[in-house]
Design a protein around this nucleic acid. Structure first.
Lengths: 214, 214
DNA sequence: TGCATATTTGCAGAGAGTGCAATAATATAA
DNA sequence: TTATATTATTGCACTCTCTGCAAATATGCA
């Protein structure tokens, strides 16, 4: 139910098909020839549209490659996180939520793999994707803040402090996401990315411990 | 002692002056009119050089704005971190090193403030700067790995695991850097950025600890 | 069918960025 | 100082990205 997806007239379907054709053409071409050796004209040719139409769908040659940012699911996992109580880590508990968010992609497997490979290969694209995630980051920060508030209602007294603390948690969560990306070897698709993600989250408390458990 | 800085003939000094003039012109213009309303031609005009020369100094309109990435200092602080021993946190101890690295800028205060303001205002620029920090990130990861090895020589058995662990530590350190940036209000220059940075690092244990102090 | 609305396309043009060759400035050695 | 080598600056032509606008085309709906 993506706003207009239920309508699904001929127009809608054609638009989606065109969008997908452009993405596919772009990803394949860059995979074949390298980012800097591919022009928008070529992409448009392969996708059977005019160059002008390309820019009706995507703002730039980069944005067509990075894909949509994840969206926070409004489901049971989220509710569970919010009410987990003060004995569960505010940080590690974020793992399953992030995993659920990133799993909900409209891409098929082929596109996903191409994207992943390109994001690893071109830091500029990876970084652009991270920028695109800012909104997701903000939603996450709000969720964390609410969870903290539920765990300890007295935090409401210092709203600014709460927000800052929540932001730090979110940033660290994104560090875990980056880590999962970096470590996940495309070939080792043996274990899905979701598991890899949870793994990185669970490693987080441990990076402190060499000093603590001494 | 930056490779050729000791030479300091007329040529070197002119080059530096030109570089600085371009940076200043670019930062001021973007501050005055907004990023998208400034052209390379305008920047070149104000800096009294030809547009072609602009691209001899900087690869793009963006790179002139973000400044150079920090470099790891090879000093006492670094040596202290490496030999701090297993009872000091591998993560929090990174704070002073990062603070020292970011403090060593060739920018004067005016440029620094303009840059900071623009990086906050334009996410694309902030992201570009983060990309530029990748090399610094790699150096940091190596330092962390060596420190871990000194703390526990048995880790040498699993080289891949060590590297991954060190990477996670570095990524989390960068989360702290981002946090410091986000929280630091330019106006509140009352406490320098260095202190703000240390503050964020010291908040990390409170977030990573398995459970709150319940 | 006929009308309203959305999509595609071509075209002209601004701006970013590059390669190349000419020119100017600086360094160096006699 | 002068001749010569090296490096920096510049102009020019060119490719590519991206935008505004208006004409043409396709779809939705009564």
């Amino acid at each position: 139910m993506t706003l207009e997806a239920t309508h699904s007239g001929l127009r809608e379907r054609k638009r989606l098909a065109t969008r997908r054709a452009i993405e596919l053409a772009a990803l394949e071409l860059v995979d074949e020839k390298g980012f800097e050796n591919v022009t928008v004209d070529e992409i448009s040719n392969r996708a059977d549209i005019s160059p002008r139409t390309f820019f009706n769908y995507f703002a730039s040659k980069e944005t067509v490659l990075v894909g949509d940012a994840p969206v926070l699911p409004n489901d049971a996992a989220l509710a569970g996180y919010l009410s987990a109580g003060p004995h569960e880590s505010v940080l590690v508990g974020l793992g399953p939520i992030v995993a659920a968010s990133t799993a909900a992609t409209s891409d098929d497997l082929h596109l996903q793999k191409l994207r992943f490979s390109l994001l690893k290969q071109y830091p500029q694209l990876f970084t652009l994707r991270m920028t695109a995630m800012r909104q997701f980051e903000d939603s996450l920060t709000e969720v964390v803040a609410e969870r903290m508030l539920r765990d300890d209602p007295s935090l409401a007294a210092d709203e600014g402090g709460l927000k800052n603390r929540a932001r730090l948690v979110t940033f660290v969560a994104f560090a875990a996401i980056r880590h999962a990306w970096t470590v996940w070897d495309g070939s080792g698709a043996s274990s899905g990315f979701g598991n890899r993600l949870l793994d990185s989250f669970e490693q987080l408390p441990g990076i402190l411990s060499p000093a603590v458990s001494a």
